[in-house]
Simulated scan of single mutants.
Amino acid sequence: MRLAEIRRYPVKSLRGHRVHEARVEPWGLAGDRRWMVVDAGEGTAVTAREVNRMLLVGAEPTPTGIRLSGADQEPLEVAEPDPARQLRVQVWSSHLSAAAAGSEADAWLSQALGRPVRLVHLDDPTRRTTDPRFSREDDRVSFADGYPLLLASASSLAAVNAAHRERAGEDAPRLTMTRFRPNVVVEGAEAWAEDDWRVLRIGGAVLRAVKGCARCVMTTVDPKTGERGKEPTATLARIRRFDGATWFGVNLVPDTPDVTIRVGDEVEVLDAVEPGAGPVRPTR
């Protein structure tokens, strides 16, 4: 197996981009989801689940911060804000503080998204813990949904597309990996083999596979148009439905941070369980 793609998302729920290499930090890839859009009133995370057009807004890292683009507006350079200007924010069950990016960034994004929002930066990524049911006490995560990295398999995507064509016909549009927003994509494994992995090595980085990824409505939003449809949920519901959810991908936690991984790196499974159990998921 080898590492086929590395994808990074500087701002949670905005458009991401592919890179050739990235440093693995304890809370995720360097530069991944360290920024977040929040509601201007409550400080709760605003995501593409409810504001689909977020997927059409770009965010590229710069030496001093990020560059926002798209939404028929002039691009905006945003510097990393002063850590002294903290806001209380919420992402899922996590309550923490983050640095306010400032009024110019807030106004740009509010216009782009059609609602009053603010932009924040996680200046100290040690503030947010992962779910203790599936990880360790000292594990940390940035503004990703729950865990530092998400892995997906090219073979598993091919299996989804095969099932999709079987149901919808050979002319059905191909479903792309972009919909699933992984950080790392591996190729050379059997479809769904990642369900069974518990520890793996990507290049020089060792990572724990702690939980399968239950997929939400966000995967049904076309990342090119921002329009919502029924796929891939309709297909996943036929072939990957467990415990009332549909599953694609595996959440990872780094055990050897500050290692740089590169496209083409060897991927080796260091520990696995017997096949057939399905993805790691909450017990009831």
Rank of each mutant, 00 (worst) to 15 (best):
G114Q: 03
S155P: 13
E50S: 13
D106V: 02
V78E: 01
R88D: 13
L56N: 03
V38C: 01
V37P: 06
S93C: 01
T47Q: 03
A40C: 08
P148Y: 01
L149C: 08
A30Y: 11
V46F: 06
A79Y: 10
A79E: 14
G114L: 01
A107L: 08
L96A: 13
E42N: 04
G41P: 06
L109F: 01
G58P: 06
P63T: 01
G31D: 10
Q86F: 03
S153D: 13
D72A: 15
Y147H: 14
R128T: 09
A98C: 08
A40G: 15
H121N: 02
L113H: 06
A105N: 07
E60D: 14
R67C: 13
D39T: 11
V120G: 06
A45F: 12
R136E: 15
A107N: 08
G41D: 10
L109P: 13
W108C: 02
L76R: 11
V91W: 04
S93H: 11
G70A: 04
L150Y: 06
P83E: 11
A30G: 12
Y147C: 08
Q73G: 02
S135F: 13
E137F: 04
A45W: 04
Y147F: 15
E80G: 10
A107G: 08
L119I: 00
R53P: 00
A79I: 12
P132H: 08
A30R: 15
R67G: 01
L56R: 06
D82S: 08
W108D: 00
V78F: 07
E42M: 04
G102W: 07
V37F: 05
A59I: 00
A98S: 12
A144Q: 15
L96F: 15
D39G: 01
F143P: 04
